[in-house]
């Protein structure tokens, strides 16, 4: 049953129509490999939380099947769910419970016998040991999130879902979280996280699935994906506003923004030549000065538009 080549989660033909009539998932097929870190990347409202919620048992699918570690999540929900831990997107906590009690409670809910030694290890690992007797409402947001992670890990799951784990999280916790995720992976836990930051997917994941409007647009190894997502944008704050782009600059894909005070140049970040040095040289030849400049990775939304149109075209 635990054949290591077999996917740990297989999702097929999964759809979800909410009561409002909204089609949140439109036939998702996805396989998660044993022991990998998988990032589900998509803008807000793409259906990431819906997908996770179905696998974890919070939302009923409209159609399709999900098998987690060999167990159908509906017919064999007990076995499936005892393998899965979930850290939801929002901070939901019992305000009046002490940290130790709430983590032990989670372990009990999942039917595991008490194991104070393991809970202690978990709390120490998440820098929560000093706070074990603190009441939840006394904790900062970051600390609460750590407790949510401890709760999700309290029953030693083989699969961990992290829904937007770094949204609204400070730098330190973010770093700790990445370290924890890597340690967990080393210990054999499969991790699925969602994010709407490309950087996050890039930093963390082995494989990335891109989801938009309820459809999984592509699933690729991270390195492959990063090659595809390459558009960058250079913005120059001009010293003097311009009425129109001089014809001498027509070799570059530039346009004027902010009433002519900004010049924007979109280029392929992975191409051999960006065209930036020659553009700047030409501008200085023309006597166009600028006060400031910055480059910007194109937003996920832009990339989605590209990917979707590409897919439609092919």
């Amino acid at each position: 049953m635990s054949d290591s080549s077999e996917p740990i989660i297989s999702i097929s033909g999964l759809t979800k129509a909410y009561a409002s009539g909204l089609q949140a998932l439109k036939g998702v097929d996805l396989e998660i490999r044993r022991g990998e870190i998988f990032a589900l990347l998509g803008p807000n409202g793409a259906g990431k939380t819906t997908l996770i919620s179905i696998v974890c048992g919070l939302v009923n699918p409209t159609s399709g099947t999900v098998v987690a570690d060999g167990h159908d999540i509906i017919r064999d929900y007990r076995n499936a769910r005892s393998k899965i831990g979930l850290v939801p997107q929002e901070l939901h906590t019992d305000q009046f419970e002490p940290v130790w009690a709430t983590v032990s409670f989670s372990r009990g809910l999942f039917g595991c016998p008490p194991d104070p030694g393991y809970i202690e290890k978990l709390l120490r690992e998440l820098s929560l040991w000093d706070k074990r007797n603190a009441i939840m409402k006394e904790l900062s947001g970051g600390m609460k999130r750590r407790v949510m992670i401890a709760k999700a890990l309290s029953h030693q799951p083989k699969i961990l879902f992290l829904d937007e784990p770094t949204a609204g999280v400070d730098v330190e916790l973010r770093r700790d979280m990445w370290q924890l995720v890597h340690r967990l992976r080393t210990s054999g836990v499969t991790i699925i996280l969602t994010t709407h930051y490309i950087e996050e997917a890039e930093e963390m994941a082995d494989r990335v699935g891109v989801i938009s409007k309820g459809e999984l647009i592509l699933v690729e190894r991270k390195s492959e994906l990063m090659k595809k997502l390459g558009k960058k944008k250079l913005t120059l704050n001009l010293a003097e506003p311009m009425a129109q782009v001089p014809s001498e600059l027509s070799d570059w894909d530039v346009k004027l923004n902010a009433d002519g005070s900004e010049l924007e140049y979109v280029f392929d970040g992975r191409a051999e030549r960006s065209g930036i040095p020659s553009l700047l040289r030409r501008m200085s030849d023309l006597g166009i000065g600028f006060k400031d400049l910055n480059t910007h990775q194109s937003s996920l939304e832009d990339i989605f538009v590209n990917l979707v149109t590409e897919r439609k075209a092919s």
């Binding site: 007990r78 076995n79 939801p88 939901h92 906590t93 809910l109």
Partner: peptide, 13 residues
């Protein structure tokens, strides 16, 4: 409070 997520995700009938 939203903590019901945990009940729903637990192996409980």
């Amino acid at each position: 409070t939203g903590t019901i997520y945990e009940l729903l995700s637990a192996p409980l009938s």
